[in-house]
Write a protein that binds this DNA or RNA. Structure first.
Lengths: 242, 242
DNA sequence: TCAGTTAGAGTCATCCTGACCCTTACTAAA
DNA sequence: TTTAGTAAGGGTCAGGATGACTCTAACTGA
């Protein structure tokens, strides 16, 4: 590698560059237990620094695209996925998070449906990892994944993010599985059902899921606001002036 | 060629410039009613674009400082304030949010105590506005202020942000005033007291606030975690490893 | 000394939650 | 055809939290 600057002070005159990265979450059955668990795709770095370590997918911001568009494109290019949910996570910009030229990363996080995730590209340099077993990543990406997990769990308890993992109709047990996978703990099926049904954002259909081994469960449909609207840009949560 | 981007890198682009801005909230008595209300300082733009309009304080990121340090410095330089609470709000980077050269702004929000706020610099080009009456601001700063207000209200209901507005000891009525000012509605004093006391994060002292016109209230002390720790960088909410 | 006001404790009905139980409806095996 | 097993989905019950409200204590200023 050729040094770009003769010394430190020269290097420090250079403005920090800007990059967009994404943390992509999907639910997949654990190969051992068969339970749904959280997975995310990582890409192998093919150059220095941190060559051969795994890292979050990312890339530069193009002149005419918004931050969110850049994240969506980036995600599509590395994993061939079109996520249902895409939201800004945090901007990471410590002066020492990357050696040599300083990089400020604006990180997005995405949720994809299991069937989509199955179609994701996967090769020598793109692989899926269990979210709690990613190993040592390049840069500060371990921190970023931890933070994304924390945000995901927080958001789940709050609102309607769970449906971003699911299709247009789903059984209540499927919603419960999403919660159990993300929060990492079992939940009482009866109480969970009661809570969901008391929520306004869900609506029973007249259809039942056939083909299971037991009593066929009713299918439901999500009718609330687009889950992304919970964050920016959003409707003012209460009219502050009339 | 040395790597310019932390992630999968592509060809180099014309980089958008990066700026740090801050939304600074303080509580001040309303000049008309005397009730505590939310205020924030704005600076007048002295050059194009949006010349003579009010805007959020902001400035560039220096090479060796972290994003948070840049926000703190920026805040100190424009208002002479050292806030008790400073947290990242959002990164705004739409391609059309600023005419001509594209600017990506990483926005922080700060909470300062009323006595501090009274010391803030104030001149022809720096003035305080009621948060719900800022008028038309430069760039997309109206959106940013709206979003910061929404986040503030959300965080308040959740946790321990209120104490960032207060000194080291305070009466329960003062905490209630903070809530009423931020949420914009009156709260039952008795129920509010009960809720706060059931919270673990607060501790009675042996002192009473003298000099009032009525029965002297007991002073309390906040003993919970630093309110900033609720967000990133934070303790892992549950130990995922070990 | 008294009127006014806030501090702070307590009451009560209601709602939400977690733990638990029971019936219904289906499949697969006997 | 019968029976065992399991998930769906309905329900009960006790305990905790919440909102509306009342009552007494303690101080100041007139």
């Amino acid at each position: 590698m050729s040094p770009r600057y003769a010394n430190v002070s020269e290097r420090e005159q250079e403005p920090p560059s800007l990059a967009i990265s994404t943390v992509i979450f999907a639910l997949r059955p654990d190969p051992d237990t068969g339970n749904l668990t959280l997975w995310l795709p990582l890409v192998r770095r093919i150059r220095q620094p941190y060559r051969d370590l795994w890292a979050l997918p990312g890339g530069p911001l193009r002149p005419s695209e918004s931050l969110q568009d850049a994240a969506a494109r980036n995600l599509r290019e590395t994993t061939a996925l079109a996520p249902r949910y895409l939201e800004q996570l945090y901007a990471f910009g410590g002066p020492d998070r990357s050696p040599s030229p300083r990089v400020v990363s604006i990180v997005y996080w995405a949720l994809v449906q299991p069937d989509e995730a199955a179609l994701a590209r996967q090769d020598e340099n793109v692989a899926w990892f269990r979210a709690d077993r990613v190993g040592t990543l390049a840069f500060d990406h371990n921190q970023i994944v931890e933070y994304a997990l924390w945000r995901l769990r927080n958001k789940l308890e709050y609102g309607s993010v769970a449906y971003a993992f699911l299709g247009s109709t789903f059984t209540l047990a499927q919603v419960r599985e999403v919660y159990e996978a993300v929060l990492g703990r079992a939940m009482d099926p009866a109480n969970f059902r009661r809570q969901l049904q008391s929520s306004v954002h869900i609506e029973p259909t007249e259809e039942y899921l056939q083909g299971g081994r037991h009593r066929p469960p009713r299918l439901y449909r999500y009718t609330g606001p687009d889950p992304r609207e919970n964050s920016f840009p959003s409707q003012p949560p209460q009219a502050t002036e009339h």
